[in-house]
């Protein structure tokens, strides 16, 4: 049993380890279409499940409710509504951020997109606010969720 009087504090009590982890992720058929449409056409795509009467954004190859294979991609436009939002004061490593960031779930059809809200002071953002995606110029897009710069108030 451990006794605090038996510890030699000069002896090694800890060892540090780390593991560089690098992975490749396959977008899959549905998300690949989503990212290509965003990059090449500046469109946000969803996919329709007629059996459940739902349009999933981002698209998925199968309906998670009824498991039907889905094929009906639809352009859902660049507009949505802030369903919920937060103001993040932390960087990824836990340190305090110099520039608090408004992050929102923007509801589009029966899904939506998690993204930044810009172009408005954080205290003026509200649930239900209409917003629109602001895209990077075509030449700068790479087929990434970051091809959308941010969402900004609309209307």
């Amino acid at each position: 049993m451990f006794s605090p009087f038996s510890i030699n504090f000069e002896s090694p009590t800890q060892w540090h380890g780390d593991l560089p982890v690098t992975s490749r992720y396959t977008a899959g058929i549905a998300l690949e279409r989503f990212f290509i449409a965003l990059r090449d056409e500046g469109k946000i795509l969803g996919i329709r499940c007629s059996r459940c009467s739902k349009t999933y954004v981002p698209p998925t190859l199968f309906c998670p409710q009824c498991l039907t294979e889905l094929q009906e991609f639809v352009d859902v436009g660049l507009h949505g509504e802030i369903y919920t939002y937060t103001i993040s004061y932390r960087n990824l490593d836990g340190s305090l951020s110099n520039a608090p960031q408004v992050i929102a779930f923007i509801k589009i059809a029966d899904g939506g997109i998690i993204h930044k809200i810009e172009g408005i002071p954080p205290h003026q953002v509200f649930i239900g606010m209409k917003v629109a995606a602001v895209l990077k110029p075509t030449a700068e897009r790479s087929g990434s969720i970051l091809d959308i710069c941010a969402f900004k108030p609309f209307g």
């Binding site: 998300l31 990212f35 993040s88 992050i103 990434s144 969720i145 970051l146």
Partner: peptide, 8 residues
């Protein structure tokens, strides 16, 4: 692909 790129 959808969430990590922001590094929030």
């Amino acid at each position: 692909m959808l969430n990590r790129p922001f590094e929030f």
